[in-house]
Amino acid sequence: MNPRLVVLWTVGLLVALALPHAVASNAWLNFWINTLMFAALGIAWNVLGGYGGQSSFGHAVFFGTGAYGTAVLQIKLGVPALLAAPAAIGLGALVGLFIGGVSFRYGLRGSYFALVTLAFAEVFRILVSSFAFTGAGFGMLIPLDQRPINLQFPSRFAFYYAALALVGIGLAASAMIERSRFGAYLVAIRENEEAAKALGIDVFRIKLGAIVLSAALAAAVGVFYAQYLLFVDAGSAFGPAISVEALLGPIVGGAGTMLGPLLGAIALHGLGEAAKAAMGPQPGLNLILQGLLLILMLRFLPEGLIGAIRRWRGHA
């Protein structure tokens, strides 16, 4: 790593660590927790959709598996959250293995793959809202018991640093992908699957590896979500809104780049807050502005924020 980058990363890390203390405000803190949480989800999506070019439209299925996994293990089986969390992440990875296994085995790509993930997310949403074991229509309420073994903390700052850690893990995974042979294969598959196959790359296994990693990361975000709100229901865990949230950040920020999903999430959530402040409490106006801004961003920054920054630096 060149020294300039080391300095940049160190500064970035220090800023991130100090950020919640910059303003003594819980709204500020919550904003960053939400933003980082969805940034981590975007980073998870980016592993498969960005580097691998397999755009998923149903990342809620992994997120929801993580959220429901930890909740069900705690409430129905009495497993402490500290153990339920890794189990739920493992469960998410397994769901990834299954969905990836069947869809890649049958060669689904492009919009077909997107639609099949969307359908799986819906199937999971319907299943968890149909059985008493998963709380049926009510959802799952994790009892309030603020001890570290329950992954519940009296201070919001703990959640901020947990979300930051999730982003950090995701970025580290992305960095490893960018530097590894696995990552090189993955990008080769994105660029031209036939050529990659001809070069002797085991396309199926590489894609499977990417979806399992992506699913595990997304499930970790789901676990965080459940521990943060202590309440999950089918619509908010497996609903299309989460799937959209997962891909919106990376695409706005720059898919297939390490920092794109993070920047995208910050930009989108920042714009969301700005739109709220600008439009007042009249229902819907802020979302109209947000939708317009999204379209304008796509119109004028087609390569995402990262692409725009690179182009700007190229010109400078």
């Binding site: 695409i251 898919a255 819907g284 979302l287 109209i288 939708g291 379209i295 087609p302």
Partner: peptide, 22 residues
Amino acid sequence: QDSMILMVTLGLSIVIDNLALA
């Protein structure tokens, strides 16, 4: 670009839905 058309139509749907609400 295909992947971007999807995002644009998503943006459009957000605008149209909330315009109707407003």
